[in-house]
């Protein structure tokens, strides 16, 4: 286990340094090319450069590939390829928006790529039940997991800094789980993801200087799904990402099907003078932000802090479930 420390530290440091350098290089180029999006939750709707996804993904990919060459872990190369495909789908969506049904369909491809790599063992640990043998049904679950995680992370990318902070808060309690499962490639991928997200979070937190775009959120969702499946800890990642599902599933259920966030006619929340509150219209979809502001209006930083708190709670529940309620 001690032999892991140096390569894992390298993965975090390298991805963070590269991400910082790529952000510094990319943001002026995005501004020069006029690739700006409105920050709709702020008075005056300031324009913010988008997407920063390439800076986050490329730093992750280089760091993980360096680690793969040092440790001969083929599964790390499979993660880079699979998440790279999700990143490209997101980038395509950033350049020319994909349809609400096309995107979930395309997001099955990164799962198929990971499946084809042979890096996945279809024996997930399940709470209460222990280690299952799902040789037939596992592959359907894997495909669904990629789509659900990627869309969940995408839905969570609604306010300044909300997505990266919630990813840190919900998955950090799973680090002891990955250590306990002795999943080096899962842990290395997760820590490299943290490293590449740190410089992004520093710029995306309130008031945002950059937006990640779908290229960022779909890549992060696919990376989390890859880590979960490599380490056979799918159920625990699903529990830890429950706040992400609240947003994703509730919106889909309340509008009665798949729809792009920008195409939802009755908005879940209303914004006035920098204060966000749930739309009083009974037909408005339910989202996590709408739930948090159902009782009173709140400012953007306060909502982000509360979402992070909820994410930390679900991460801790996942950790407790693994150590106390899972036969091993």
């Amino acid at each position: 286990m001690l032999a892991w420390i140096a390569p894992l530290a390298l993965a975090v440091a390298l991805s963070a340094i590269l991400s910082e350098a790529f952000h510094r290089s990319l943001i002026p180029k995005l501004i020069a090319k006029g690739r700006l999006s409105e920050d709709v939750h702020k008075p005056g709707r300031p324009k913010v450069p988008e997407p920063a996804g390439p800076a986050v993904y490329l730093s992750f990919a280089v760091a993980v590939m360096v680690l793969a060459s040092m440790t001969d872990q083929v599964s790390l190369e499979a993660v880079v390829a699979s998440t790279g495909l999700a990143f490209l789908i997101g980038l395509l969506d950033d350049i020319s928006p994909l349809g609400p049904k096309t995107k979930p369909f395309l997001l099955t491809l990164p799962a198929l790529l990971l499946m084809a790599s042979g890096a996945i063992v279809p024996r997930p640990y399940l709470p209460i039940l222990g280690r299952a043998r799902l040789y037939y049904t596992y592959w359907v679950i894997l495909v669904a997991m990629f789509t659900v995680f990627s869309n969940g992370v995408n839905m969570m990318d609604a306010l300044n800094g909300m997505m990266p902070l919630s990813v840190f808060a919900s998955t950090a309690p799973l680090v002891p789980v990955l250590i306990s499962l002795k999943s080096f490639s899962g842990l290395a991928s997760l820590l490299a993801l943290y490293g590449s997200l740190l410089p992004y979070y520093a710029r995306n937190r309130y008031p945002a200087k950059v937006f990640g775009g779908d290229s960022n959120s779909l890549f992060v969702g696919a990376a989390l799904a890859s880590v979960a499946s490599l380490s056979n800890s799918e159920a625990f990642f699903a529990i830890s990402l429950m706040p992400f599902m609240v947003s994703g599933f509730s919106i889909i259920a309340s509008i009665g099907g798949l729809m792009e966030r920008r195409d939802i006619r009755i908005r879940p929340v209303l914004v006035e003078g920098g204060v966000i509150r749930a739309n009083p219209d009974k037909r408005a979809p339910i989202s996590l932000i709408a739930v948090l502001t159902s009782d009173r209006g709140k400012t953007e930083p306060r909502i982000v802090r509360e979402v992070a708190l909820i994410s930390l709670l679900s991460g801790l529940l996942a950790c407790i479930t693994f150590f106390l309620l899972t036969p091993r």
Binding site: V246, V291, L292, E306, I310
Partner: peptide, 8 residues
């Protein structure tokens, strides 16, 4: 609102 989110 926060209590409801924790409940969810």
């Amino acid at each position: 609102g926060l209590l409801l989110a924790i409940y969810s």
